[in-house]
Simulated scan of single mutants.
Amino acid sequence: MGNPTQKIKTSESTCPAALLKGEIPSRFQSFWAIGNLDILNTNLLGVFCSIRCPGSIILNTYDCMRILHDSGVAVVSGFHAPIEKDGLDILLKGT
Score class of each variant (00 low, 15 high):
S71N: 07
G22E: 14
S71K: 11
S56G: 01
G55I: 11
T61I: 08
G2K: 15
K9D: 03
S30Q: 14
D86T: 06
V73W: 00
C64K: 10
P25T: 10
C49A: 07
A18R: 15
R52E: 10
T42S: 10
F28P: 08
T5F: 06
L19N: 05
S26V: 07
M1A: 12
D89R: 12
I24N: 08
D86A: 00
H80N: 09
N43R: 15
M65N: 03
R27M: 07
L68N: 08
S13K: 15
V76P: 02
R27P: 01
D86M: 03
L68M: 05
S30H: 06
V73I: 15
T10V: 11
V75C: 02
V75Q: 07
G94D: 03
N41F: 00
H69I: 04
P16W: 09
L37C: 04
C15H: 12
N41S: 12
L68W: 06
L88D: 01
T14C: 05
G94P: 04
S50A: 05
C15V: 13
L91H: 04
E12K: 14
M1E: 10
P4V: 11
V75M: 08
L37Q: 11
I8E: 04
S30G: 02
D38F: 00
N3P: 04
L59W: 01
A81G: 01
Y62D: 00
L59K: 13
L19Y: 01
C15N: 10
P54L: 03
T42D: 10
T10C: 09
L40R: 11
A33C: 09
L40I: 09
E23I: 13
S50Y: 06
T42L: 09
I51P: 05
M65L: 11
F28H: 15
T42M: 06
A17H: 05
S56I: 14
I51G: 00
F48Q: 13
S11M: 05
S26E: 10
I83E: 06
